[in-house]
Amino acid sequence: MAVQERYDTRPFGPDITAGMGVQLLLLEVLCRVGGLGTVGWFTGCLFAVATWALLTVALRRTWTTSFGPANRVTLARTILVGGVTALVADSFDRRTPVVVLVTFAAVALALDAVDGQVARRTGTSTSLGARFDMEVDAFLILVLCVHVAIPLGAWVLAIGLMRYLFVAASWVLPWLRGALPHSMARKTVAALQGVVLVAAGTGVLPRASAIAAVAVALGLLVWSFGRDVAWLWRAGVAAGVPPVAAIGGPPLAGVTSRRAGPDR
């Protein structure tokens, strides 16, 4: 997809700062209404500060003059993910309101389709926005895996860690950095992970059914990654890309594979 750069002239700083303020307000509401404990509150605050710092640095490095409407939608999703993260962290020490956790996660997943539509319709699609969107998705899946792993077992974490392992492998294997062709199967499998994890996280499904559903989702994810890795290997061999990065070579500035940064 062609990247279009069209922004207004408003500074992006207030958007990020306001988002951090809303995140802290949400944590306060969870403390007073949902019984969020100290561990959850501290984790949520840490998430908010890290998000603010990373976004500020990333936007300044791209010389962006406006945050953009699509990124504001993604920022709203980030706030919900922060709430989910706080509740999951708190669940190790006390009983958390599962209904609230699942609601936040479900809304964040549903809004995943909105920011892309906004970016395309307003002509503000950027590689940074796509990366922001992707990182929020990946982190939400990882947090949901932690939540589901408590009753089902640590094996569930493989779903959330697979994307990060792929990126780590691309630091050593240059051919993994290639651009993948568009695939509805890849998108469908990715979307299925969130749906299954939310369903399993409700606690409504019998344990055997939840295990079966998550296992099927993991199997499909392994198949999807395996198919893409095979495609990237063939493309890398055809293009003459070295199989392993040279020792002492330049650090990886960014991964181009849609496994690491899909277009909005």
Rank of each mutant, 00 (worst) to 15 (best):
R6Y: 10
Y7G: 03
Y7D: 09
D8Q: 11
P11Q: 09
M20N: 02
Q23D: 03
L26S: 01
V29E: 00
R32Y: 01
W41A: 13
A48W: 04
W52Q: 09
A53N: 01
L54W: 06
T56Y: 12
A58C: 07
R60W: 11
R60T: 12
R61W: 07
S66N: 11
A70T: 10
A70G: 12
N71Y: 11
L75D: 08
L80M: 15
A86G: 05
S91K: 04
S91I: 08
T96M: 15
P97K: 03
V98K: 07
A106Y: 09
L109G: 11
G129T: 03
L144I: 10
V146H: 08
H147L: 10
P151L: 08
L152P: 08
A154M: 08
V156C: 06
A158C: 13
A158T: 13
L161F: 14
Y164D: 06
W171L: 11
T188Q: 05
T202V: 05
G203Y: 11
G203V: 14
V204C: 01
A210M: 14
I211E: 15
L218Q: 10
G219M: 03
G219A: 09
G226S: 06
A230N: 01
W231L: 15
R234M: 10
A238Y: 03
A239P: 01
A239C: 07
A239E: 09
G248A: 14
P250Q: 13
L252W: 03
G261K: 04
